[in-house]
Computed example of a mutant assay.
Amino acid sequence: MLNYKHNAIEMDKIINDSIKALDMGKKEIIEIAENTRLDRKRLEDELEVLKREVFEIISEIEELEHDLKQSKKKLFDVNRDFNKYSQSELEKAYQDADNLLVKLAVRREQERFLIKRRNDIEVRIKDSTKTLKRADNLIGHVGIALEYLSGELKDAGEELDNLQQKQYLGIRIIEAQEDERKRFAREIHDGPAQSMSNIVIKAEICEKLIDKNIGEAKDELRNLKKITRDSLQEVRKIIYNLRPMALDDLGLLPTLERYVISFKEDTNIDVTLKVRNVDVELKPAISLTVFRIVQEALNNILKHSEAKSASILLERVEQRLIITIIDNGVGFDTKAVRVNKKKNKSDLSGGFGLYSMKERVALLEGEFEVKSEIGKGTTLKIQIPLINEEEAPN
């Protein structure tokens, strides 16, 4: 009993220290967000000035090109009928043409510099916007954590075991969210962001070529169309990974069919999907849970099982939805898979994936069962009650 009280006091101290650290972290994030917002405003103002300068210098280049054309014509006339002109007139014609060439070269170099500077600022503005969005999200998450720590967990001495589990899960969820944000940030930066920058450059090239070389302009437009199409495909893929829109538009079964087909094509693992007696429209909470469970299960099969084939069976038995997922992989010892709280990771790869699936099912008051032996594959069996809309958990 004495040890229990000691642990409770220790936990209260940890909570208080966490609240202080989170509060300081929140203030620092707010300060970073404000500085980023000011920096973005400064960049936006600078971008407007650069746009005006680019427009002005392009207009000046067009005038210089026109003047140079006239000067070359004059020079041609002078050379053709040099007997009609004095020596000073000949020298002036050459000098005017040289001056225009030099001035045009300088202006074109200035144009290249300004366009590069403008593109760099546009990229920095996009990066600042992403940073602000992440900062705002972090402020919200830290606020929730502060409210949670300051409220329900403030006097959690009698619920110490439950508190420790929730605290650990909270850390894992935050880590998973941050890893997911980093992954999406990398995907956006390396994919659509780079493509958009290329689109801007290609559009500028087309704009310059359209009146000079229509053939090259068409080639650049074809390249521009391909880049745009690829960028759109990347954006759609990122959106699908966040949440497949087909789940809302078409329902669970068509979305699962499309996902299984895509998984088979990407991995060469033969996955079959069978459905029995599931002829009712499932509630959003159930549809999303089933989709994420299948997604996580197939991900575990790909990463850990070395399986060549797998099967998924969805069937309705009275008022319960039963999902059975079987693979012919290497299997594992179910007793050896547990979440190691001290190391913040699973003792076996995939352990946290199984644990997260189990938690999803528990939220819907369902049952989760894992059967596996080394060398004999793995079977997951999930039973979820088909609850009414008003009974669905938040």
Rank of each mutant, 00 (worst) to 15 (best):
S346D: 15
V280G: 06
L282Y: 01
V290P: 05
H304Y: 15
F352I: 15
H304M: 04
R338L: 12
N300T: 04
I325H: 00
V280N: 05
S349Q: 13
I301W: 08
N268K: 15
R292K: 15
L288R: 13
E318F: 06
L321T: 04
A285H: 11
V278N: 00
E265F: 03
I312G: 07
S346C: 11
S346L: 07
S349M: 06
A336G: 04
V330L: 12
I325C: 00
D347W: 08
V337W: 08
A307L: 02
R338F: 15
V290N: 04
S305T: 07
K264Q: 15
Q319E: 15
D270C: 01
V290E: 07
N300E: 06
N328M: 04
V271C: 05
K274Y: 06
A307E: 03
L348Q: 13
L313S: 09
L282R: 07
S349K: 09
K308M: 10
H304A: 01
S309D: 08
T324N: 11
L348T: 11
G331K: 02
T272A: 12
N340I: 10
I312C: 09
V339C: 05
S349P: 09
D266L: 12
N340L: 09
L282K: 07
G351N: 09
K283N: 14
T289E: 01
E306V: 05
R292D: 14
T334A: 12
L298Q: 03
D327P: 08
V330C: 11
D327Y: 04
G351T: 06
L288V: 10
N340T: 00
T324V: 14
Q295S: 15
G350Y: 04
E265C: 00
D279W: 03
D279K: 09
A336I: 10
L282P: 03
L288Y: 14
L321I: 01
S305N: 07
T289H: 06
V278W: 01
N268D: 14
G331E: 01
L288P: 05
P284Y: 06
D266P: 02
N340P: 02
R338H: 15
G331P: 02
L314G: 04
G331M: 09
L298I: 06
I269W: 01
E296T: 15
V290M: 03
L288F: 14
V337A: 12
V317W: 04
A310H: 08
I322S: 03
D347G: 01
S346P: 07
I326P: 01
D333P: 09
S346N: 13
T324P: 08
G351S: 07
A307Y: 01
V278E: 01
R338W: 14
E281W: 05
S309I: 00
E315N: 13
L321W: 00
G351R: 03
V290Q: 05
K341V: 11
L314N: 00
E281N: 13
P284D: 13
K345A: 09
L282V: 05
K274S: 14
N277Q: 10
A307S: 09
F352C: 09
R338A: 09
K283E: 15
K335I: 04
L302V: 06
T272M: 08
F291L: 10
N268L: 12
E318M: 12
G351F: 00
K345D: 12
I322L: 12
V271E: 04
L314D: 06
P284Q: 06
D266V: 02
K274M: 13
L302P: 02
L313Y: 11
E265T: 13
I286L: 10
D347R: 08
T324S: 14
D279L: 04
